[in-house]
Design a protein around this nucleic acid. Structure first.
Ligand SMILES: [Mn+2]
Ligand SMILES: [Mn+2]
Ligand SMILES: [Zn+2]
Ligand SMILES: [Zn+2]
Lengths: 154, 154
DNA sequence: CTCCTTATTGCAAATAGTTGCAATAATAAC
DNA sequence: GTTATTATTGCAACTATTTGCAATAAGGAG
C-alpha cells in the first residue's frame, strides 16, 4: 500500500486537554468515554495523518490485545458521526483523521500516490453557485480529488 | 429546472451496436468478450442508472445461476479500468454505470437520498486553477458531492 | 475446421467489514 | 461508597469483497 498518511501541518493540540474536553463533551451528550475510545483517540493524536481501520486495529491491539475489531469499527463510525474524526476515500481505502475546525481536502496522484492538502476556500465559488442556481446546500468535508501531480503529469 | 432528479434518459445508444463495438475494442486490446461480460454489459444497457455489485449479481444470476460472484466483481473492476463503466461512492456504497463520453457528477442529499446530476463544466474553473497554481492535473470523473437538497435544506 | 496460446472463469479459501445479543462497566444519583 | 441505569463491549455469526489456482474456452493462426 502507498503512503496515504503523510502530510500535515502541525496543529498545536495538547493531547491531555483534548481528551479531557472530549470526555466532557461525550458525557454531556449522554455518551461514555471508555478506555477503548481513549486509546483510539490517543492514537490519532500521536499519529497525525490518515489511518485506515486496519492500521488503527494493529496499533491499538499492540497495547491491549483484547480490544475487538467490532469495537474499533464502531468507534471510528461513532467519532465520525459526532465530528471528532473525518472520513474519506483514498485510493479505494477508507481513511480517518482528527477533524480540525477548518475543513481541508486532498489532491491524490493516481500514479505515485502522493497526497497534497487543498484548502477549503477553493470550493467557495462552487458551493455558492450550487446554492444559488441549484438550491443545493453542499457540505464539502474532506473531499478527495484524483489526478496527476506536477511531477507525474509530464 | 426540468428533470433534475431523473437523468440517464438521454441515451441514444443502440445496445446491439454498442456491444459489437465493445467486442472489437476488447479484442483489439487482447481481451475477450465472454458471455459473462456480455450479460453484465447488457444489464447496464437495459437498466440505465447506478447499480451496486450486489444488484448486478442478483440480476445476472437470474439468467445464468452459474456465473460466479468473483467473476462479477472482477468484471466490474475490469470495465471500470478500461473506461466502459464509471464507479463512485454513493451513500457508502460502490455504484457503477455506463461511462458516457461526457463526464457527469452527482449531488446527493444526505437527508432524503435524492440524487441529482451535475454537469462537468461546473468544475472547469477549479480544474484550471489546480493546473495553473498547484501543478495538479485533476481528473474528475463521477464525483459525488454530499449536502442538503432544496427541499430538505429549509 | 483444428490447433494453440493464454485470458478468463469457477471454485474455495482468505480477508474485510457488519450485526444481534448477552455480559460488562461508565456515569449519575443518592 | 453503593446502587441503578443503560451505553458500550466482546463474541460469534454473518455478509461483502478479494485472491490463488487449476480448468476452461475465446480468439487468432494455419
Ligand atoms: Mn486529510
Ligand atoms: Mn451517475
Ligand atoms: Zn505523482
Ligand atoms: Zn433532500
Amino acid at each position: 500500500m502507498g503512503n496515504l498518511t503523510h502530510h500535515h501541518h502541525h496543529h498545536p493540540v495538547d493531547p491531555e486537554k483534548f481528551q479531557a474536553e472530549l470526555k466532557d463533551k461525550l458525557n454531556s451528550l449522554g455518551y461514555r468515554y471508555t478506555p477503548q475510545r481513549q486509546q483510539i483517540v490517543g492514537l490519532f493524536l500521536s499519529e497525525e495523518g490518515h489511518l485506515t481501520a486496519k492500521e488503527v486495529t494493529e496499533h491499538v491491539q499492540q497495547q491491549s490485545a483484547s480490544i475487538d475489531q467490532a469495537t474499533i469499527y464502531r468507534s471510528l463510525e461513532f467519532f465520525y458521526k459526532i465530528g471528532v474524526l473525518s472520513c474519506s476515500q483514498m485510493g479505494g481505502q477508507t481513511v480517518y483523521e482528527i477533524a480540525h475546525s477548518v475543513p481541508h481536502h486532498h489532491l491524490v496522484c493516481t500514479n505515485c500516490d502522493t497526497v497534497m492538502p487543498l484548502d477549503d476556500h477553493h470550493f467557495d465559488d462552487l458551493v455558492a453557485h450550487l446554492w444559488q442556481d441549484h438550491q443545493f446546500r453542499a457540505e464539502l468535508t474532506h473531499l478527495t480529488i484524483s489526478g496527476l501531480c506536477g511531477h507525474c503529469a509530464n
